[in-house]
Design a protein around this nucleic acid. Structure first.
Length: 598
RNA sequence: GCGCCCAUAGCUCAGUUGGAUAGAGCAGCGGUCUUCUAAACCGCAGGUCGUAGGUUCGAAUCCUACUGGGCGUGCCA
């Protein structure tokens, strides 16, 4: 049961009496601060102009038309015309009981499921993954899981950068700079080094010396035999795209190693994709796309390039360069075409950092001009990951902070945390070394993901191991700990919770903390709706943190195993059960695991 | 130059798209353990919501200008 949705359903006919346009007014029913009740309806104020009566009077008329007796106490009017709603304890208890017995813990599947394609992660195959990739991967995965749980058809597609200029760089590097022994030993690392080296030399030639694999004082001599390196790289790229035998052979040789390195990271993150159709997949569509766009009069030639001019933007979107080659804009259009043909989605979400927002605005406008006007194209943008010095926390050339080393460090810190917790237990250490390692992996990876997801995605965020691994505050370890505390109760009391769950045991709300917990639990469905509404997983972390705090309040003031009566004991155990399941499931929708003890 | 984004407590951030006295978490101060994990909980303190105007019953939120920061900007992705 979605409480808010139910209230809105009840308000609809009453509001319809005053105006035809009720939807905006329904949005003004919202959760309230506790001192004012559970929910508040703020529709009387805007209605005063339509009805022509003072808002408090409007509120009174509205209340008289509402049929809420079964779920709410009598509504009250406060201030300028707020309608305060307090849910009945008996109704809350009944709803909580239903949620306990429900596999989906009270979350109804979407009434009208949509089809979503989510495009996330999309690393450049030739470069090592770094911290910048984690946001796209983690946010995209959370949206994938959440939309799927809500009953939508969701297709995840990792749009790998496997065909662009970066491969020209790697191929050029391979041909001229490779260390054969290192390549044989560890191809991915050597390719990454080559990429960085070529990048470094190009920067050097552009007069912007940067750090990289080569010492700065050796750059001139390294650079000298390769004048105009950027041009040479583009030539290698063009040869690859033309299908010249050697470059294509190298590309085919590099790809499996690169992909398997990526999948190692994805496996560890617990991320998997339905499809991994990289840029190369669309190569043979590109010329047809350009022709078609031109034929429809959407694109035109300008200064030798084929361009789509978008009214709002001074610079056009170039889809074919004057030298005849294509760009990522071309690939992106081809990708939209392919996805529409293949899956007919209602929405395509691009989880990509905010610096590309202008590109997507142009792309979406171009797609609409091209005829794809009935699909929601959404740039789910996110901010930059910053270091604690407030500078972008990106891999510096030559000194890369690889994603894997970040994972290692998070897990190592979680391991130390797990040991510390275990050793401080009053009854002595409880975990084996293997268990500690398992806890560390779940908590460490969880901490990293949670830190990212708990941030409003649109803002930059400061990356801090200390904060993400803290047991206080809005962190994964705190949530995971809250979960283990519930499990601890079952262990201590020798409770078989699933039997109790099926026994139709009634929920009793005898204490304010129990009531508060029940309300928080029943708002899970609302939280998921909020996540999906603006594609913001942080709505779920906020909810879970709030739930965990509410549970702590309950835990402090309501003994469970030692409850005054057996009826109360069973009821409280079920509230614990619903809390644990909500936390576990909520974290799962964020791609984060839990352990029974830590 | 033009465009987009941001500015909220000492620090890191929320703020449900215009609603009640702007909220959390850290850090600080003070309490609470013979009692289900004290790795917890409770309380106190902390604010000119960048500045100045405007819109209205009501503004951190919307509009304008300004200040300070970030990002992007015709042949990279």
């Amino acid at each position: 049961m979605n409480l808010l949705a139910e209230l809105r359903r009840r308000f609809r006919p009453a509001l319809a009496h005053f105006t035809a346009d009720v939807d905006p007014l329904l949005d003004m029913i919202r959760p309230s601060q506790p001192q004012h009740g559970d929910y508040q309806a703020n529709c009387a104020m805007p209605l005063q102009k339509i009805v022509g009566r003072p808002p408090r009077e409007v509120a009174q008329q509205l209340i008289e038309r509402l049929e809420l007796d079964d779920l709410c106490e009598a509504p009250t009017i406060a201030g300028p015309g707020f309608i305060n709603l307090r849910l009945k304890d008996a109704w809350l208890a009944e709803q909580a009981g239903q949620a306990v017995r429900d596999e989906r813990i009270g979350v109804a599947p979407a009434e009208s499921p949509r089809t979503y394609v989510i495009d996330y992660s999309a690393p450049n195959v030739a470069k090592p993954m770094h911290v910048g990739h984690i946001r796209s991967t983690v946010i995209g995965d959370a949206l994938y899981r959440t939309l799927g749980f809500l009953g939508h058809r969701v297709i995840s597609d990792n749009h790998l950068g496997d065909w662009g200029k970066q491969f020209g760089m790697v191929i050029y590097g391979y041909k001229h700079f490779r260390d054969e022994a290192r390549y044989q030993d560890d191809p991915v690392t050597e390719l990454a080094r080559l990429y960085q080296l070529v990048h470094q030399i190009i920067e050097h030639q552009a007069g912007k010396p940067t750090r990289g694999p080569a010492p700065l004082d050796q750059l001139p001599s390294l650079s000298e035999p390769h004048p105009n390196l950027e041009r040479r790289v583009l030539d290698e790229t063009a040869r690859l795209h033309r299908g010249e035998e050697e470059n294509l052979r190298l590309w085919k040789e590099f790809m499996p190693a690169c992909l398997s390195a990526l999948h190692q990271v994805y496996d560890r993150l617990g991320v998997r994709f339905d499809h991994e159709l990289g840029e190369s997949y669309y190569d043979d569509r590109l010329s047809k796309v350009v022709e078609d766009v031109q034929a429809k009069g959407v694109a035109e030639e300008s200064e030798g390039a084929i361009c789509i001019f978008i009214h709002e933007f001074p610079a056009p979107m170039i889809i074919r360069k004057s030298d005849g080659s294509f760009l990522y804009a071309t690939t992106d259009l081809a990708t939209i075409q392919y996805r529409m043909e293949t899956w007919r989605p209602d929405a395509i979400l691009y989880v990509v950092d905010h610096r590309q927002s202008e590109h997507f605005e142009k792309l979406f406008a171009a797609a609409r001009l091209w005829g794809y006007s009935d699909v929601e194209l959404m740039h789910v943008s996110f901010g930059t990951v910053m270091g604690e010095d407030k500078r972008p926390f990106k891999a510096r050339e030559g000194d890369p902070v690889g994603l894997e080393s970040l994972l290692d460090e998070a897990v190592e810190r979680a391991y130390r945390l797990a040991c510390e917790i275990d050793e401080k237990k009053p009854e002595g250490p409880q975990l084996s070394e293997a268990e500690r390692r398992e806890v560390a992996e779940v908590v460490g990876i969880g901490a990293l993901k949670y830190a990212d997801l708990s941030q409003n995605r649109t803002s930059d965020y400061v990356f801090s191991f200390d904060k993400m691994c803290a047991l206080d505050g809005n962190t994964a370890p705190y949530m995971q700990m809250a979960y283990t505390r519930v499990c601890g109760i079952y262990r201590k009391g020798g409770v078989d919770i699933s039997t109790l769950r099926d026994a139709e045991t009634p929920i009793v709300l005898s204490h304010p903390a129990e009531r508060q917990l029940a309300v928080a639990l029943l708002r899970y469905s609302e939280a998921l709706d909020e996540v999906v509404k603006d594609y913001r997983p942080s709505q779920l972390t906020s909810y879970l943190f709030d739930l965990a705090k509410t549970y702590s309040g309950f835990f402090e003031s309501c003994p469970v195993l030692k409850a005054e009566t057996e009826e109360l004991r069973r009821s409280r155990l079920l509230l614990c059960d619903l809390t644990a399941r909500t936390i576990k499931q909520g974290l799962d929708l964020l791609g984060i695991g839990v352990v029974d003890k830590m």
